[in-house]
Design a protein around this nucleic acid. Structure first.
Length: 195
DNA sequence: AATTCCGTCAACCGCAATAAT
DNA sequence: AATTATTGCGGTTGACGGAAT
């Protein structure tokens, strides 16, 4: 435990490790290498491919971006609903949640949650008065399977300024019938049964 | 028109879990 | 069985672009 695996900054030989955004060249190298040799064994892969990156970085780049089945683009309303449901169920188990959204990565879902959803939850909290101690919850709060009703939000967040969400209303095939939900409906429905 | 503010996303970091030796 | 290496996860940061001032 006193040896950090990918910490060869400076010490081991002279393998300068690149960090930061990936270039197109690097992407191509990685794609090409994996096409020929498959993925896995990331540390040796990085070396063998001639990339001056850590295995970790390669893995992340591949999984989150280069993999052919990664699906980019807007998260659909259906996906959004699913994310909210699953997050309510499991909390910040991003990779677990991602397994239920084909083509979406944990990173993407996490980002989506933090930038789009959590914000609204906070708004809703603030909105419903309660100046209690809500610091940064909604994340690491519930882990155990305790029936923890993460607070009862009683008013849906006002949702006006929300650009770059899908045009609404949207035709959703949620449970069964009940096909049409507005965004407000979705939010409040989710916020209300916060477990 | 220039500058600041804000939201989004890709990528990094540290830690934990798991696998290999 | 113990130690070390690798992989996976979740939180956080920093760059960038567009909106607001």
């Amino acid at each position: 435990m006193d040896k950090k695996p990918d910490d060869d900054n400076g010490k081991s030989q002279d393998v300068e490790v690149r960090k930061g955004p990936w270039t197109m060249e690097e992407d191509l190298i990685l794609i090409n290498y994996i096409a020929n040799h498959g993925e896995g064994s990331w540390n040796s892969l990085a070396k063998a491919a001639g990339l001056k990156r850590t295995g970790k970085s390669c893995r992340l780049r591949w999984l989150n971006y280069l993999r052919p089945d990664v699906r980019r683009g807007n998260i659909t309303t259906e996906e959004q609903l699913l994310i909210m449901e699953l997050h309510a169920k499991w909390g910040n188990r991003w990779s677990k949640i991602a397994k239920h959204l084909p083509g979406r990565t944990d990173n993407e879902i996490k980002n989506f949650w933090r930038t789009r959803i959590q914000k609204h939850i906070k708004q809703a909290e603030a909105f419903s008065g309660q100046s209690s101690e809500m610091s940064d919850q909604a994340s690491t709060s519930h882990m155990s399977s305790m029936p923890e009703p993460m607070e009862t939000y009683d008013s849906p967040p006002s949702f006006q300024g929300n650009n770059n969400m899908e045009p609404l209303p949207v035709n959703l095939s949620v449970e069964s019938n009940e096909a049409y939900w507005s965004m407000d409906d979705l939010w409040s429905m989710q916020l209300l049964n916060g477990d």
